[in-house]
Every structure is written in structure tokens, then in C-alpha cells.
Design a protein around this nucleic acid. Structure first.
Length: 678
DNA sequence: ATAGGGTTAG
């Protein structure tokens, strides 16, 4: 039978086109997709349907619809719909296929096609179909939840979010499937914080979360710091809502425990799960095993393997690879080698992963050359590599200063593989930086750029360190700025070094900017850093910036540094801030000495339009137990005509009273409470 | 009638 003739000429093109997604004619060697086979099997070629009624179909034929009195017609109708679905799925021109045959299909039929496109990663057609469905008002909740899922999976979680946000109907927007779908997209694209925020908003809008919602969100806890406590909150909430833990939730939770260093808790959940009648599967076991790997608890791991044997579970590749990780983390390298051998015999060591685990462990325990011999062994066996093993060894050689060896591996890699990613490029970059080969450093950066590989934290860190070592401080600064803008946390030690050198070379503003980046990134920073920067800023006469440091961290700065700052500020700081500075350092418990008052007064006398500020200062002083000494007093009196003699006389006499009443022992007490200038 | 899961390496 010639299939083409049954489906009409519209289909012929698809069947004979070389497109890999095209179905095949019976004589072609191209295999049929399972959907195609199903459609053909379900199609009754002997029915009273002729080729012309199948595709394209006329809308008016559908209005008659199937009737109870006519089972034959119903069958015909069902088959017609099936062939229309098939026709649309396999059409090379979706747009025209839809306009010709989409009309007879119900929403659920269109959803079938939507999922078909999604499963086969046919993203363009997926979107085209969904657009058509929207325009023809043929969408329901299932369309949205499927479409959002696939769009998120394809390329752009942001697009999925757009689609979700564009849903006008509140009932659809808070439907649990639709919510679960978009939350899953967000979680899988690493936007866990946003997904939690969305989740809360959804609940306020009327979402009734179910067990799927909670398991979706729990996945986000696996790769996030503080994930364990967030997971606990979610578990508490689901229980509060009357839902109960199922096997899936337990699996995710175990994985959260393993990745968050909660070995004891992982054990507890494992037991709890069993006591609730869920028998653990290979995933539950591997998560627990992974938790044991963190602390190298190989005894417990071996017991667990025994349990698996008793339960009749297969010790698969992942389980044995994870066991290898346990041995490596326990520094049991002999046991590790034996197990790796076993993996090889079982055919579980066809890719580089187990070798990488062993090499990484050896490198971390300082056995670089042993790691290299594992590497050589692996190469001899022609194990497939994606670059992981190379990057482990290149980085290891860099770390111990074996730069020739590192560079040799880079050449080997570049000669044999053309695949680059951020990690392999980082290790190459690191080698060239350590070797001080600027040309090659630039070459690597260019390559990164060309391949549109975005630098990560490590890349920036390597480059900044390198630029610092080459005394290219401004370049290092620009790179750090870039790093900060890209949202990476800057590292304190490196910031400290860079700040110091920027200060030394007169780039004071840049030093201040580095300090601010660090402050922005880190909640707690080394207490001595504020003072170090203060010295730099005072030296650079950036007194306004210096004042910011003092105001925010006065309590952490030594009296001598405060004195140095205040002295400079009185001399050349913004005159409008002089009183503020005095009050601020006083509020931190520093006693203002006479020299500072003297220079403040001198400043004011130089700029007579600021006389109000002088009067304010003189007024403030006695309340805090301060008074001017005789030389300052004489200076003021000499210029008293500028301020109004009467006012000056009154202010000074108030101070005089203070100076008399504050007797020696009392004064000593006041002073004692204050921090002394050294 | 749509939505969820967990394992290994740089």
C-alpha cells in the first residue's frame, strides 16, 4: 500500500523530503517514528474515508459531529481527527496545516500535538502551534502547563515566565499544575530565590499547593547554600497543610541532606521513610551513600552496600562510582584502586568520571604524580574524555608549580580536542598566568570571547591575581569592577592586596571603590580593613570618603587613625562638615583635644561667611564638657567683631564656667571614659 | 488530565 496516496498530496512532500523528522514511505529506509507507526496502525484504511476527507478537512464537515445513532460515523470522525493530528504533526508547513485542519480539533487534541512537539524538542513548531491555539482561543489549563514546561526546558525560562505572567485568567494563573510547571522551570534554571517568592505570591493569590509543588521546590534546595533549613521549612509547611511525605519527597530530601552536609539527618529520614512503609530504591541509597562520602564514612557505606545486596537491588554504575568517592574521601587509595579495577571489569569505567574522582582525591592529598599515573593509565586505555581529567591535572600541576607539565597537557589537549568550556579555559589561563606568558593569557581570553563562554568567579580571580602580580593594578581594578558588575562576590584577601597597591600608586578613588565592592559582597569583613583604607584615603586627601569610613566604622578604628583623619579634615576637609566630624568622633567615644578645636576655629576664622558654624560649635562644646584653651580663646576674641561681640562673650563665658566647674578629679573621670588618643 | 524526584567528575 502506498501511504502517500492515502494522505493526499499535502503529505507527499514531507514523506519524500530528506528531513530527519519526516516520516518514511514504506519503501524508504528511514525508520518511522513510534508516533507515526501508532497513527498508521490505528488508521483503518478500509473505512469509508477517502484520501480527500482526511487532509485537508473542511470545517463544515465537523459541525455535523458524531451521533449516537451512527457508530460508524463516530468511528469515522475519531479516525478523521487522528489523521488530522498526524497530518499536523508531520506537516512541513505547520501554518498552512493548521489553517486547513486545525479547526476540527478540540483543545485536548491540539494538546496532544503540543506535547508531541515538546517531547521531540521541536521548539519552533511548539511555539507556532501554541500561538495558533491562543489566537483561535483553543487553550486550556493543560495547554498552559505543558507549554510552560517545554518552553522552560527548551531554552528560555524567561520566556516561560513571560507566558505565565501574560495569563489573564486568575483561576488559570493559580491552578496547581500551571504553578507547578512554572515553578519547576524557575527551579531548574537556578532561580530558586525567585521561585520561592513566586510561590508565596501564588499562595496569596489562591494557589493550593500539593505534594508536587513541594517536591518541585525541594529540588531547588539541593544546590543552594542554606538549602537544608529551607527544605525543613517546606517539609513543615506541607505537613501543616495535611499532606504527607511520599517516596519522591524523601528522595529529594535525602539529596538535600547529602549536599548540605547533613549526614545524620539523611540517616534519620532514611529510617523514617522505611518505617512509613516506603522501600528505598537505588536513588535513595545513592543519596545516603553520597552523604557518607562527605565525611569519608566508609564503614557505614559498606554496610549500606550490604543492605542493598540483601534487598536484591542492583549495584549499578552510579552506586559503585559513589562508593569510589567514599573510599577516595576516606583516603583509602588502595581500596579505591581495587574498586576502580572492578568498575573497569564491569564496563562501568568507559568514561572518565571514576578516574577523575580518584585523580582529584590523590591531588588533594598531595599525590600529584600518582594522579598523573592514573591519568596516563586512563589515556592508554583510550577512555573517552570531555576535558575533566585534563583540567584536574592542569590545575594540579599549576598548584604545585610544575608549569612545564601543565603546559604540555594543554598542548596535548588542544592537539586532540577542540572542545572548550569555562573550566578547561580557566585551568589553561591559570597555567599561562603562573608562567607569566602574557601573550597566551590574551589568547585564552580572546578564545573565551570568541566562543561566547562567559567568565566565572574563578576566571576573574585568576586574572585579577595575575594582573596584580604583573603590577598592572588599574587593569586588575577594571577586571574586579567587571567581576562585581557580573554579580560575583569579590574575595577579601585579593581586595586587600589590590587596595593596598592602588593606594601606593596614587589610585585612591579606585582603592575606595574596591573597598565598597567588598562591603557590598560581604556582610562581615576583616575589622582592620576599614582602618587600612582610612590611611589610604587620608593620604590621598579623599576626606569626604574617609569620613564615610569613619562614620560607618568608628568603633573599629584605632584612636591614632581617627586622630590622623580628624587633623587632616580640620585642615582641608569640607568646611560644612567640620562640626559633623567633631560630633561624630565624639559620639564614638573619642575626646576631642585642643589642637583639633584650634584648627577647627582657625578654619572658620578664614571663612567668615561660615560664622554660624563656629557659633554652633562653641555652643555645643560646654554641654559635652569641652571648652577652648586660652590660645584659641584669644584667637576668637581677636576676631570677635566678625561674630557680634555680645554673642561671643556669652558663649565664652559659658565655657569658662565649665572649665571652672570641671575640677581636676572629675575631669580625669570624664577623660577616662573617653578613648585616649595615642 | 495538565505538574514533581533524587545518584557520580573539573
Amino acid at each position: 500500500m502506498e501511504i502517500c496516496s492515502v494522505f493526499g498530496s499535502g503529505f507527499h512532500h514531507t514523506l519524500t523530503s530528506p528531513s530527519p523528522s519526516a516520516a518514511a514511505s514504506s519503501s524508504s529506509a528511514v525508520p518511522l517514528s513510534s508516533t507515526t507507526i501508532r497513527a498508521i496502525n490505528n488508521f483503518d484504511f478500509t473505512a469509508t474515508v477517502t484520501s480527500t476527507t482526511i487532509a485537508p478537512l473542511k470545517l463544515d464537515e465537523t459541525h455535523k459531529g458524531p451521533t449516537k445513532s451512527s457508530p460508524n460515523l463516530r468511528t469515522v470522525f475519531r479516525k478523521t481527527k487522528q489523521s488530522a493530528i498526524f497530518y499536523i504533526q508531520e506537516s512541513s508547513d505547520l501554518e498552512s496545516a493548521l489553517s486547513r485542519s486545525g479547526g476540527i480539533l478540540r483543545v485536548q487534541d491540539l494538546n496532544v500535538i503540543l506535547r508531541h512537539f515538546g517531547k521531540l524538542n521541536r521548539w519552533k513548531e511548539l511555539s507556532q502551534l501554541f500561538d495558533w491555539m491562543q489566537q483561535n482561543e483553543k487553550t486550556n489549563i493543560a495547554s498552559y502547563s505543558s507549554y510552560i514546561k517545554f518552553v522552560g526546558k527548551s531554552l528560555s525560562p524567561l520566556k516561560a515566565l513571560d507566558i505565565y505572567s501574560s495569563i489573564r485568567d486568575e483561576a488559570t494563573r493559580t491552578n496547581v499544575s500551571v504553578c507547578n510547571s512554572i515553578l519547576s522551570c524557575m527551579v531548574r534554571s537556578g532561580k530558586f530565590e525567585s521561585s520561592l517568592k513566586m510561590f508565596h505570591q501564588m499562595k496569596r493569590d489562591g494557589l493550593k499547593p500539593d505534594i508536587v509543588t513541594y517536591s518541585t521546590l525541594l529540588v531547588g534546595c539541593v544546590k543552594v547554600k542554606d538549602g537544608y533549613s529551607k527544605a525543613l521549612e517546606l517539609v513543615k509547611e506541607l505537613k501543616y497543610n495535611g499532606l504527607s511525605m511520599d517516596s519522591v519527597i524523601y528522595g529529594t530530601l535525602l539529596s538535600v541532606c547529602a549536599s548540605n552536609n547533613q549526614c545524620a539527618e539523611a540517616e534519620r529520614y532514611f529510617e523514617e521513610m522505611k518505617s512509613e512503609g516506603h522501600s528505598p530504591n537505588v536513588f535513595h541509597y545513592s543519596s545516603l551513600l553520597n552523604a557518607y562520602a562527605v565525611h569519608g564514612n566508609y564503614k557505614k557505606a559498606e554496610n549500606l552496600i550490604q543492605d542493598m545486596r540483601s534487598a536484591g537491588l542492583e549495584l549499578n554504575k552510579v552506586i559503585l562510582t559513589t562508593l569510589l568517592k567514599v573510599y577516595v574521601r576516606s583516603d583509602l587509595f588502595e581500596k579505591s584502586r581495587v574498586l576502580l579495577n572492578e568498575l573497569e571489569n564491569l564496563g562501568y569505567a568507559a568514561d572518565e568520571m571514576p578516574y577523575c574522582i580518584l585523580m582529584d582525591g590523590l591531588v588533594k592529598s598531595g599525590q600529584t604524580l600518582e594522579a598523573k599515573s592514573v591519568f596516563d593509565d586512563m589515556m592508554k586505555k583510550k577512555v573517552r574524555t570531555d576535558g575533566y581529567s585534563y583540567s584536574i591535572m592542569i590545575s594540579a600541576f599549576c598548584h604545585v608549580g610544575l608549569l612545564q607539565e601543565a603546559k604540555q597537557l594543554i598542548s596535548d589537549y588542544e592537539a586532540n580536542y577542540q572542545k572548550y568550556d569555562v573550566v578547561i579555559l580557566n585551568s589553561m589561563l591559570c597555567a599561562y598566568c603562573r608562567a607569566g606568558e602574557m601573550d597566551n593569557v590574551m589568547k585564552m581570553m580572546k578564545k573565551m570571547d570568541e566562543l561566547a563562554i562567559s567568565p566565572d568567579w574563578n576566571t576573574f580571580h585568576i586574572l585579577i591575581k595575575y594582573f596584580c602580580s604583573e603590577k598592572l593594578y588599574i587593569l586588575a581594578y577594571r577586571t574586579m569592577e567587571d567581576m562585581h558588575k557580573k554579580g560575583h562576590q569579590v574575595e577579601e584577601e585579593l581586595c586587600c592586596t589590590l587596595m593596598f597597591h592602588l593606594g601606593k600608586t596614587g589610585a585612591y578613588g579606585e582603592a575606595f571603590s574596591v573597598y565598597n565592592m567588598l562591603r557590598y559582597s560581604k556582610r562581615t569583613m576583616n575589622k582592620s580593613l576599614h582602618e587600612k583604607l582610612l590611611h589610604i584615603l587620608v593620604r590621598g586627601r579623599l576626606l569626604k570618603e574617609a569620613y564615610v569610613i569613619v562614620k560607618d566604622n568608628g568603633g573599629l578604628i584605632s584612636p591614632s587613625a581617627i586622630k590622623k583623619f580628624a587633623t587632616s579634615f580640620m585642615q582641608s576637609g569640607n568646611i560644612n562638615l567640620v562640626n559633623d566630624v567633631i560630633k561624630t568622633i565624639h559620639s564614638f567615644g573619642f575626646k576631642i583635644n585642643q589642637e583639633l578645636f584650634h584648627s577647627a576655629v582657625s578654619r572658620y576664622l578664614e571663612e567668615t561667611q561660615k560664622k554660624d558654624l563656629l557659633l554652633q560649635l562653641l555652643q555645643w562644646m560646654p554641654g559635652q564638657g569641652y571648652f577652648v584653651d586660652s590660645s584659641t580663646r584669644n584667637l576668637i576674641l581677636k576676631n570677635a567683631h566678625l561674630f557680634g561681640r555680645q554673642t561671643i562673650a556669652e558663649l565664652l563665658s559659658k565655657q569658662h564656667i565649665v572649665s571652672k566647674t570641671v575640677k581636676k578629679p572629675q575631669q580625669a573621670q570624664v577623660v577616662k571614659k573617653k578613648r585616649e588618643f595615642r
